[in-house]
Amino acid sequence: MNKVLITGIDSFTGKYLSIFLEDKGYEIYGTSLSKSGDKKFICDITSKNDVLNVLKEVEPNFIIHLSGISFAAHGKNEDFYKVNTIGTTNILDSILELNQNPSKLILASSATIYGNQGKEVLDESLCPIPANHYGASKYSMECLSKGYFSKLPIIITRPFNYTGSGQAEQFLIPKIVKHFKEKKDSIELGNIDVSREFNDIGYVCEVYKRLLECDKKSEIVNICSGRGIKLLDVISSMNKISGYEINVKVNPAFVRKDEIKSLTGSNEKLYSLIGNVEQKEFELTLRDMLEA
Rank of each mutant, 00 (worst) to 15 (best):
K15G: 01
T112M: 07
P128D: 12
V277P: 07
N90Q: 09
R210L: 11
T264A: 02
I154G: 07
P174L: 11
C143L: 15
N239Q: 14
S110R: 01
G147A: 09
T85R: 07
Y208D: 14
C43I: 09
G68W: 10
V83G: 00
V234T: 08
I235M: 09
F62W: 13
K217I: 10
I235D: 09
M141H: 01
L21P: 06
N2E: 11
S150A: 08
P60T: 02
R256T: 10
A292E: 07
D215V: 02
I129S: 14
G14C: 04
S18T: 05
S165F: 04
L211P: 02
S18D: 02
K15Q: 08
S36V: 04
Y162P: 00
D185I: 04
I19G: 13
S125V: 11
Y81S: 15
N99T: 00
P174A: 14
V277E: 12
G118T: 07
G265A: 11
N161K: 08
G8T: 10
A73Y: 07
P159C: 04
I19L: 15
E281K: 11
I42Q: 06
I28E: 05
I129L: 14
L152I: 01
K24I: 02
R287Y: 13
K261H: 02
G166I: 06
E268T: 06
H65C: 06
G275K: 05
M1S: 15
V83A: 00
G30H: 09
I6W: 02
F41W: 09
G87L: 13
I113K: 12
E245K: 10
G202Y: 07
S70R: 11
V277L: 05
D200F: 08
I173G: 06
T163W: 14
T89I: 15
N116L: 10
N222E: 00
E206K: 10
I246G: 13
V177P: 07
L21K: 03
Y134S: 07
L263W: 08
N132H: 03
I69N: 04
M141Q: 08
S242P: 08
F254E: 09
V51N: 12
E245N: 04
L66K: 09
N222D: 07
K249F: 05
K15W: 00
I274A: 09
G265E: 15
Y139G: 04
D233G: 06
E278D: 11
T46G: 12
D185Y: 03
F149P: 00
S150T: 04
S242G: 12
S242V: 06
G190I: 04
F80Y: 15
T31K: 07
G37W: 11
V277C: 10
S109V: 11
S150D: 13
N53Q: 13
D10H: 08
Q167W: 04
K175C: 12
K178R: 12
I63F: 13
E206P: 00
